[in-house]
Amino acid sequence: MIRRIFLDHPASVDETYREHMRVAAGFGTAMLLGAIACFTHALVPALFKRTGSTTVKRLHAKLTRDPQRDGKRPDYEI
């Protein structure tokens, strides 16, 4: 059960538990900051005009990276 909860998914994307934690936390941080920028933009449209879309594009590029380039799976799931 412990293996299923903590290790099976990271292994399925060719990562250790610690690597997966770092990657997932990085995605989470980027999404939180992007969300804050989007909410700020909603209130003050002159601010953060492209931050939300730039964040989404950057994260999408990481999720769909070329597996030949870095040895990781292209269909990464957090």
Rank of each mutant, 00 (worst) to 15 (best):
S12Y: 07
H20Q: 04
F48N: 03
R65Q: 09
L43K: 05
E77V: 15
A30G: 05
I36T: 09
D70F: 09
V13F: 08
Q68G: 10
T16F: 07
A25D: 13
V13C: 04
T40V: 10
D75A: 11
H9P: 06
R18H: 12
H20M: 01
L47W: 02
F48K: 07
R69Q: 15
K57S: 12
V44D: 04
E19H: 02
R65I: 03
H9E: 13
P45N: 06
R50A: 11
T54A: 14
D66E: 08
Y76R: 06
R58P: 04
D8G: 08
D75P: 04
P74G: 06
V56T: 02
L63C: 12
E15L: 09
F6M: 12
R50E: 05
E15D: 11
A30Y: 00
A42F: 14
A30R: 00
F48I: 00
T16S: 14
L33R: 08
R4A: 11
H9D: 07
D70M: 07
T64E: 04
V44S: 04
L59D: 08
L32C: 08
G28F: 09
A37H: 06
P45S: 09
F27M: 08
G52V: 00
Y17R: 14
R50V: 09
Q68M: 13
A46I: 10
K49M: 12
R65D: 05
L59F: 04
M31D: 03
T64W: 03
R69H: 12
D8L: 04
M1E: 10
Y76V: 09
P10Q: 07
V13M: 03
R73G: 06
K49L: 13
G26C: 08
E15P: 02
L63S: 07
P10Y: 03
M21N: 08
T55V: 12
Y17L: 13
Y76E: 04
E19Y: 05
A24I: 03
D14C: 12
R22M: 10
Y76N: 07
L32G: 06
H20P: 06
A46R: 04
F39I: 09
